[in-house]
């Protein structure tokens, strides 16, 4: 199997500076008379410029993990370090695209205003804001809908707005929490290509959480496979697919099928409660 051999050379990946460093992350929910350990001793690093997917079985605590990384949730133990600074609240260098696109956009603002507001909060001048907003709107293909309200758009287009807002913010790391789980299959394929496209264009570092194995393999440069609760990382899979990917070609290659097969196997093991050596649930 060609999995752990020779990663595709990517010059623009700066292998020396980690953008995001998660060390020994642990999250225990307390309450209702019992403690629930959702995440246990989870460690991984994302280098600047990478596109990493996290995939795990249902109920693997993916959302918990993402909320801890984004500083929305306090961690029980361990630490999350972004740009060399420990995360204790939502950090300035991070943008999050949520699954619930309809609920993460401000319905009283237009598309343009939705994208502009975070930039305003960042303290950018008006001309600079206008330019960045327009670039982002054009990049996600919403040029004609810039002055519409989010509720006038389809689900896929709403998620494009959320993505444009995140990209315009120019974060060190862009977190995406199952962003396409609620859109139909065709829209989903378009949005996946959009993510690859924006990643190339804006050189943004992306951490993409999904439950969809195909999506993870198709999008990522690396796929982190999560175990069942309490969550740890089962395997860090290098995706050796070529940099230019297409829904039609890439998905029908043998390499894609092999990688998909391998990740699928890991997920099945995870569902059956398999854990790395020396760790017991």
């Amino acid at each position: 199997m060609s999995i752990d051999t020779t990663p595709a050379p990517r010059e623009r990946i700066d292998t020396t500076t980690p953008a995001l460093d998660v060390r020994g992350l642990k999250k225990v929910y307390t309450g209702h008379g019992r403690d629930v350990e959702a995440v246990r001793n989870l460690t991984f690093t994302i280098r600047s410029g990478e596109l990493v997917c996290i995939v795990g079985p249902s109920g693997a605590g993916k959302t918990t993990l993402l909320r801890c990384i984004s500083g929305l949730l306090d961690v029980t133990d361990g630490e999350v370090v972004l740009d060399g600074k420990k995360v204790t609240e939502p950090p300035p260098g991070m943008a999050v695209v949520f699954q619930e696109y309809g609920r993460s956009l401000f319905p009283w603002l237009t598309v343009r205003q939705n994208i502009e507001l975070p930039l305003k909060e960042k303290g950018l001048k008006k001309a600079e804001r206008a330019e960045k907003v327009q670039t982002a709107i054009d990049a996600v293909g919403l040029t004609d809908s810039a002055d519409a309200h989010p509720w006038q758009l389809s689900g896929g287009m709403q998620q494009r707005v959320a993505i444009a807002r995140a990209v315009a913010y120019e974060p060190s790391v862009l977190l995406m929490d199952e962003p396409f789980a609620a859109v139909d299959a065709q829209t989903r394929a378009d949005l996946e290509d959009l993510v690859r496209d924006l990643w190339h264009k804006f050189k943004v570092t992306v951490l993409f959480v999904t439950h969809d194995i195909d999506e993870a393999v198709y999008l990522g440069e690396r796929v982190l496979v999560l175990s069942h609760r309490p969550t740890v990382i089962l395997e860090d899979v290098k995706i050796t697919l070529p940099d230019e990917r297409s829904q039609l070609e890439t998905r029908s290659t043998k390499e894609f099928a092999d990688l998909r097969h391998h990740v699928y196997e890991q997920i099945q093991k995870a569902k059956q409660g398999f854990r790395p050596d020396g760790d017991t649930a």
Partner: peptide, 21 residues
């Protein structure tokens, strides 16, 4: 909406913006 509140937290809205917007 809690997603909206989370959104304004991750984009670090200032207090006055948060209260008004």
């Amino acid at each position: 909406d809690e997603v909206l509140v989370d959104t304004s937290r991750t984009y670090r809205f200032r207090k006055p913006t948060y209260f008004y917007q």
